[in-house]
């Protein structure tokens, strides 16, 4: 089994098709525009030959999450909590106001708060979907789901993701 597979960024690809020219297994010879992951052997020839660097090699097994200091986690989480509250306020205002300017600016704030909140919380140890931290989080949801929680979604993720810890 390869340790890496090739992935094409379709926003960058200009269909020079050097990948197709060099690929030893025909994995780039697809209708979807994406690499056929079942055929890719992870050699990296396509990524090296692409004149636009539109292909990158994605590791199949990622390194472990580096240990996080509890105090750093606590401080970053506190700010992400504030962002989530601000997002909830902006969302409610955007959804209820009749004022078009207020709605517009609150939509922007809602989006911005979400993006900042996402980025903050991912740096507390949830950067990688395949990490042990995410596995334990999903397991905790399945074991003790809050009311109405989509348990099947968490179960399917636990089955599908190739966790590294």
């Amino acid at each position: 089994m390869p340790r890496m597979i090739a992935s094409r960024n379709l926003r960058i690809c200009t269909k020079d098709c050097m990948c197709l020219y060099v690929c030893p297994t025909g994995a780039t010879d697809t209708e979807t525009g994406q690499i056929d992951f079942a055929k890719c052997v992870g050699c990296g020839d396509c990524a090296r030959s692409c004149p636009n660097s539109a292909i990158s090699m994605i590791p199949l097994d990622y390194p472990h999450q580096q240990p996080k200091d509890d105090t750093v986690v606590q401080k970053v989480r506190a700010i992400s909590d504030s962002k989530a509250r601000q997002e909830a306020v902006a969302r409610q205002v955007a959804e209820t106001t009749d004022d078009p300017e207020l709605r517009l600016i609150m939509r922007a704030v809602r989006r911005s708060e979400r993006l900042m909140g996402e980025d903050l919380i991912r740096e507390t140890g949830y950067l990688l979907p395949q990490s042990g931290e995410v596995r334990r989080l999903l397991e905790a949801f399945v074991e003790n789901p809050p009311e109405g929680f989509p348990v099947e979604a968490a179960e399917e993720l636990l089955q599908r993701l190739n966790f590294n810890a």
Partner: peptide
């Protein structure tokens, strides 16, 4: 919070 968990999962 639910808001933090939502951001964690959308990320």
């Amino acid at each position: 919070s639910a808001g933090q968990l939502s951001a964690l999962c959308s990320n």
